[in-house]
Amino acid sequence: MQIRKKRLTRSPGGDLAIFIFLLAGGIFSALPLVFAISNAFKPLNELFLFPPQFFVRHPTLDNFKDLFVLMGDSWVPISRYLFNTLFITLAGTSGHVLMASMAAYVLAKHRFPGRNFFFSLVVLSLMFAYQVTAIPNYLTMSALGWVNTYASIIVPAWSASLGLFLMKQFMEQISDSLIEAARIDGASEFRIFWSIVMPNVKPAWLTLIILSFQSLWNETGGRFIYSEQLKTLPYALNQIISGGVARAGVGAAVGLIMMIVPITVFVFNQSKVVQTMGTAGINK
C-alpha cells in the first residue's frame, strides 16, 4: 500500500491503522459477494457440506443450467420478462434524463418566479422515503387507469428527485458567458440547452442514467403490476429463488446475474459519477 502524497502530517502508525481498518471493511463488504459468486459455481454436494466451505472446489455451471431449465418451464417465456425489464428501464431512464435535464437547465440558469420554491420542494422530497407516498400513488394510478400498465412504473421514474438535484447542481458550474454568447448569436433556448449545455454536462447525465438504471433494473413491479405478462425479470427470478433451500445454488446464480449488470455499468463510468457527485452539496 502506497500513500498518494507524502505530507508532513503523515505517520507510519496512522498508515498502518488505516490499512487495517480498510482491510477489515473491505473483507466485510466483499464476503457476501464472494459467497454469492462461489455458491453460484458450487455443485449440489458442495452446497450442503458440513462444515460449510467458503470457496468452490469443483466449479460447475450446473446452477446456471438448472436456471435455464427452470426458466424454460415458466408459463410466460423468460424472454418476455427480460423484454419488460429492458423496456421499463429504457423508457424510464431516457425520459428521466431528458425531463430532469430540461428542468435542471432552467432552474440553474434562468431567473423566474417560483424557481426557488420549486427547487426547495425537490430538496424536501429527498428527505422522505417513497413509502410515504405509496398509498396515494396507488389511488392516483387507479384513477388514471394505469394500474397494471408499464406507465405505472415508467412515468413516476421520470420525475425522480435525486436526478434533478444532481443535474441542477452540476449545471450551475457552466459559465453564464457561454450561454449568453449563444443567445446573442440568436440560438433558441432549446438549441442552447441541446447543443451547448448538454454536451458540457456529460458526466452528470451519465450519472443520471446509472442511478435511474440501477433502480429500474431491480424493479419488481410488485405494487402496480399483477399480470404475469407484464412482470419483470427481478420478479421472475425472485419466484425461482423462493423455492427454498433446494434452490440455494440457483438463487446464487440469479443474484450473480442481476448484480453483474449494474456493477459493470458503474465500473465503466465511475470517474464520471464521482465527478458529478462533487457538486452535490447543499449550502444552508
Binding site: V106, S125, V132, T133, V155, W158, L164, E189
Partner: peptide, 18 residues
C-alpha cells in the same frame, strides 16, 4: 415550458400524494 414536463409528473407523483 422547460420545467413543465418534469414539474407535472413531480407534482402528480410526489407532492400531491403527500
Amino acid at each position: 415550458l422547460f420545467l413543465a414536463p418534469y414539474a407535472i409528473f413531480f407534482l402528480i407523483f410526489t407532492v400531491l400524494p403527500v
